[in-house]
């Protein structure tokens, strides 16, 4: 790794760690279903950034570009299904609060 690559890695590294902690906090602190999904989304963004940095450091930028495009497509599909299910919950329960739908236990 050259000196400029290490420098760049640290800049990206700080942002990746920040995004990770924001996403984790968002998932753990909230009781709202949509906010939990937003937290997941922020975590996925952090991973996307990590993969781009990995491609830059290992010299496989073309490979990681295709990986990131594929990832974004998959992520969009997953989030569509997830939001559909949240809509279903809201329709039947009239609430997005996790505390009101905890009926499966044990």
């Amino acid at each position: 790794m050259s000196a400029s690559a290490v420098y760049l890695f640290w800049i990206f590294g700080i942002f990746i760690v920040m995004l990770f902690s924001i996403g984790l906090y968002c998932i753990l602190a909230t009781f709202n279903l949509i906010r939990a999904l937003i937290g997941v989304e922020i975590l996925i963004k952090a991973v996307t950034l990590l993969i781009i940095v990995a491609g830059f450091l290992s010299g496989h930028t073309a490979l990681t570009q295709s990986l990131v495009i594929t990832m974004i497509v998959i992520e969009a599909v997953v989030m569509t299904i997830a939001v559909g299910i949240v809509l279903g919950i809201h329709k039947q329960n009239k609430s997005l609060d996790v505390r009101k739908i905890r009926s499966l236990k044990g």
Partner: peptide, 25 residues
């Protein structure tokens, strides 16, 4: 498409998304 099924599915979505994040890291 009832509430219990949605709850099970939502739990699986969150766990599975976190698993994918670990896998991608």
């Amino acid at each position: 498409a009832n509430l219990l099924a949605y709850e099970g599915a939502f739990k699986y979505i969150i766990f599975s998304a976190i698993a994918s994040i670990f896998l991608l890291c």
